[in-house]
Design a protein around this nucleic acid. Structure first.
Lengths: 224, 224, 224, 224
DNA sequence: AATGAATGAGCGTTCATTCAT
DNA sequence: AATGAATGAACGCTCATTCAT
């Protein structure tokens, strides 16, 4: 992954960083393919040809965004996995780490979902598969250990569950489109955690405070 | 939804139906915008211009796919809501109905997720918003009733939960990309139901057999 | 010109005549190139491919219309020229004959004006030049004779005047587009004759009744 | 006319102006619809796509040509109408002004005649109707005043006459197709004026010098 | 006589990219 | 760093025409 980018990457000249950010916002909204370089240039107030002083192609902007995202996700996950032996704690850390990273990398997520078939066909983006495979392994490992320790239901299909959880995590990030939807990052992480740990069914015997999502009700009591 | 079919849609001459199916497969894989009419024609073994004997535009193929999907989803939901007073049963029906419909309409799902910004801008597709609003209302209604009856956790944010559940349901459908991923429609519905009702945490006090997801372990005991 | 048309012309089977008429109406409105065979077929209530049972090409419909028109015009002019020695009478006959013919052949006129560059390039339509040359010769001949006899102004440029008169004659035909414009064939012929013979300036010394256009004022006294 | 220029029209960078001129020549020859953007590009020695660096559509080239023409015509007519109270002088100015303008805007004329049905259907070109209505009003007004003052024949149908005159004026412009037809702008204006004022009939009682067309027969030495 | 399906060339347009200035 | 002009391939679509049924 750690793709060390082209010659002109050496000077992360603020201008360049701004362009990546601008492009990212557009990619997040409409996807990579559906965003034209002209739209990016328009957003930056320059002509489309001028973009090529900063990047050698539209693809390399995508590359930068995707590799930056995956680097950060993996770093967060590795730390979470190394920090404790308790699967539940680790998974909770996965979720919180993801929620934070995703909020800053909405573009990468949209690209992964919308344009996967596009990137997958290109050798340049082989690292996408490498990285997603490592991520899957980290999750599945925790789920299996949770099953063995009796924490998780023994009938859980670890890979199926991982896929479900990963995508569940991604969901709220996509909602950012309609910016003012009323939920912030923490609320969403809580709701997701509560959902995946305990489901939506009420349960009187649930030990109070064990679930981090208990905060949900307090944080925004007026909602419901 | 008021499915607005193109004039020549009245006679679904098998050839035409085949073209819609073929187009749908491509849309499901790469999205609507990213699929070219030449690709669709190639898949059918004809020239791109020949498509226009059957459809008046690429858009109208998309229209047909999307409206067909939403019609079916809504029909299923309305029946589920009318069939019983028990929110849990209704929601379970929502899930099973969705799983079945989605399996037959993967293209619509991809289009809704990948190309939403494209369709939203077009008056022709106004029904997308109408329909999704009704769907949301049906779900939120059941969730609220479940909360009031004590079935669901009182701290549940019904709209947030609906959004989460809807997208959770959509998740496995998207996996179809790598066709042989080993889970069938029932297994997925079960896993999803179990997840959203009970979460992933083991619980000894859980009454055996109440959850339909109990079948998961039996159906594919060799997996893990 | 008298182009004897293709094999299937042998049976002027009313169906065929109807198609030519229908096509003519469309050509008259929008020109030849701008009218599609599909539009013609639609007007006839059949599919576009079915037209080719009656004509071997769109061009041959145009051919039929144009040659029919020119045949009729030339016949009328030859008769007018042969009927009298008086240039003024002959020219008046040219005008009256043209007005009648043009009213029945609006399509040909539009095609000659709109699509001339299209037909001129095709050997098949060489007769257009032959015919227009003969027509020009007939007019110029009368104008020259009128000059010599002192009837017309001696400073008249016969060819320039012919061109002007020919096109003046064509003008009202083109107005047919907005069908109900309130002037009928006779009125128009009268107005044109009055214009070209006497101009628009009032003249007290003008012998009453010499101009055929005297009828104009009587026919529609309420207009002015 | 409220000329609605495209965004990039603000800088008429010589290249752009050259393209409009080139396109105009083609439109004048074959009409707007019948001219392809590839032909325009070929004439300019560039690729068809490159045109879109300068214009956002073929239509907007047409818009520019048409609105430019109508602006100029109206300006000339308004000046002519404001300059004198004598209808004959005004109409003579109309004719001379038109002849000059038309010579520089042959494309517009061809488009108005060949592609009227095309433009009329488009809201963007609503100004065509507004402008032609004003032009008609300006002419009819002069004709009516000429009738009342006894200058023009009392039986003249002003609207019918206007239509005739307008189209008569347009006629010679269309001949430009075969560029070397031997008459220049002034000759044509004179011939037209002489025709519309006095007709083609010789008349001894005609007051010498009243008609500007008197110059036609002579060598035209005094052309100022 | 007509249909229904298709062809193949060409249309107006878009887009990532290049490059002299 | 950026512009302005251009490229070349591809796009969605149209159209006259063909042909088996």
């Amino acid at each position: 992954m750690t793709t060390k980018k082209a010659s002109n990457a050496s000077l992360p000249s603020e201008r360049r960083a701004r362009l990546v950010r601008l492009a990212g916002e557009l990619f997040a909204e409409k996807g990579f393919r559906a965003t034209t370089v002209r739209e990016i240039a328009d957003a930056a107030g320059i002509l489309s040809g001028s973009l090529y002083h900063h990047f050698d192609s539209k693809e390399s902007i995508g590359d930068e965004i995707l590799s930056g995202f995956l680097d950060e996700v993996l770093t967060g996950y590795r730390e979470a996995a190394a920090g404790t032996d308790d699967p539940r704690t680790t998974i909770e850390q996965f979720v919180r780490s993801s929620a934070a990273t995703l909020a800053r990398h909405r573009a990468a997520l949209t690209m992964l979902q919308n344009d996967w078939s596009h990137f997958r066909a290109m050798p340049r983006f082989d690292y996408l598969r490498t990285a997603t495979r490592e991520i899957e392994h980290l999750w599945v490992d925790q789920l299996e250990r949770g099953k063995q320790s009796g924490l998780f239901r023994p009938d859980l299909d670890a890979r199926l569950t991982y896929r479900l959880l990963r995508d569940v995590l991604w969901i709220p990030t996509r909602w950012g489109q309609s910016s003012s939807n009323g939920w912030d990052t923490d609320q969403i992480a809580d709701a997701v955690l509560r959902l995946i740990f305990d489901g939506i069914v009420a349960r009187d015997s649930r030990p109070a405070g064990t679930s981090p999502a208990d905060r949900q009700g307090r944080a925004r009591p007026a909602r419901s």
